[in-house]
């Protein structure tokens, strides 16, 4: 009987984490597409949020949303 490649010592055995990732997300087209779509959605929202936070930290005190309360307080 021919032993598998990793038993012969030509390849290292697949790490369990990698096997888990493959079986859970990549093995079937359905789970693969679901993974792609949900990761794209989550990553997109996160990236937008992070970049907007960076933009606002660059312009702290300059944007209208930072100063509009000041004028309201003066009117009342």
């Amino acid at each position: 009987m021919v032993q598998p490649a990793w038993v012969q010592g030509r390849l290292k055995p697949e790490p369990p984490f990698s096997r888990f990732i493959y079986n859970t997300f990549f093995k079937h087209a359905s789970t693969y597409m679901a993974t792609v779509i949900s990761v794209a959605f989550v990553a997109g929202v996160t990236y937008d949020y992070a970049m907007t936070a960076f933009w606002e930290s660059c312009n702290r005190g300059k944007l209208w949303k930072h100063i509009k309360d000041k004028y309201k307080a003066e009117e009342e």
């Binding site: 933009w55 660059c58 312009n59 300059k62 944007l63 100063i67």
Partner: peptide
């Protein structure tokens, strides 16, 4: 203070 790639207009 509004020139520069990351600089917004000073709303005030």
């Amino acid at each position: 203070d509004h020139t520069g790639y990351t600089q917004a207009y000073d709303a005030a």
